[in-house]
Design a protein around this nucleic acid. Sequence first.
DNA 1: CCAGAATTAGGACAAATGTCCTACAGCGCG
DNA 2: CGCGCTGTAGGACATTTGTCCTAATTCTGG
Lengths: 199, 199
Amino acid sequence: MGASETRQQIVDVADRLFYERGFEATSFADIARDAGLSRGNFYYHFKTKDEILAAVIGGRVEKTRAILEAWARNADSPADRIRSFVHILITNRTRIMAHGCPVGTLCNELAKLDHAAKEDAARLFSLFRDWLARQFAMLGREADADALALHLLMRSQGVAVLATAFRDEAFIYREVSDMEAWLQTQCPATSLSRSRQSV
Amino acid sequence: MGASETRQQIVDVADRLFYERGFEATSFADIARDAGLSRGNFYYHFKTKDEILAAVIGGRVEKTRAILEAWARNADSPADRIRSFVHILITNRTRIMAHGCPVGTLCNELAKLDHAAKEDAARLFSLFRDWLARQFAMLGREADADALALHLLMRSQGVAVLATAFRDEAFIYREVSDMEAWLQTQCPATSLSRSRQSV
DNA sequence: CCAGAATTAGGACAAATGTCCTACAGCGCG
DNA sequence: CGCGCTGTAGGACATTTGTCCTAATTCTGG
């Protein structure tokens, strides 16, 4: 077994457990067990828990970049791209209702721990923020593109938190529709923006 | 020293630490040290960590009830009462940027731990939800009062998450203004609703 | 002032934690 | 073959965790 494959598997398992249970609540033993490794072997690949966290965050950054690029490829209009973002709430609704948003909950936890990696985690938000701002700028909203991006990010985070607390699927669908309606009001002049309006 | 005072002090310290560091990351020893008690004395008052959590949540429920009643007393119009809710984002902005919303982050953590008390924590949200819904109903929105309440709760949670991640005070003020503007559009017929419009 | 209850201090305890070490298995290369 | 390197296993280590016990102290009613 190559070292890089084992390493990748550790990161994958840690990524999942950090999301499902949280960073603090996940132990070395948990990751080793789920990955089918001894704790000693584990140490060969990662010296500290913070090293794993850094690898997990790094992996999420890459995955996020790939997703954003895919959305940009598969949607022609900026409005449709923004809708792709909004729709992850529906695509991932089951996992969100169980464990919240992977980015938001990690940032919250690292902020409370005052962990050194909290800024790195927040950079995951920045990826979405900058990408969304670019889409809004393309819609002619250069002046307030960043504010609009933050607003949409804010909404999706709020939906994730309440969806977790109340486990209410209908609420998610309702708020996603509301976000799409809001999107319409923000870029009314764009002809392409009505191509995929409803849920 | 009476037992009830000591008990109350334990709950106060635990409440603060659960908020600032999180439930899992706070140990018996942490609470005992900050409260100036021995771990043995601690055990006299609370047998398990879950008992403290239950007491902390119970205390927060009472404090929340008191706050909601105070808002109802001090504001004559439902619109002003709702604005009182929106403004906690500004009042508590420093603590929110450091540790997030006390309710949202606790619900998220307990959901991840699949803790037995997660529904009790979510009941804190329900207090705000029902109270807000009553205000919207008084504004003549009986039909969708609960949806409007959830929407506002969603926004405040989203603001809290992003404010923590980015530590952006201006963002909070901007979104609070936006919420107030939204409020105006939701109850345009009410004359009292313009009595305290801006931040 | 004193018996008994209420409250506190100071550990004991096993289990789990993050970290680290040593020994061994499998492999390619001389 | 045998040397050395990479990867793995298994456990040692001190510390901390939640939980629990016992002995001392403080308080209170008679």
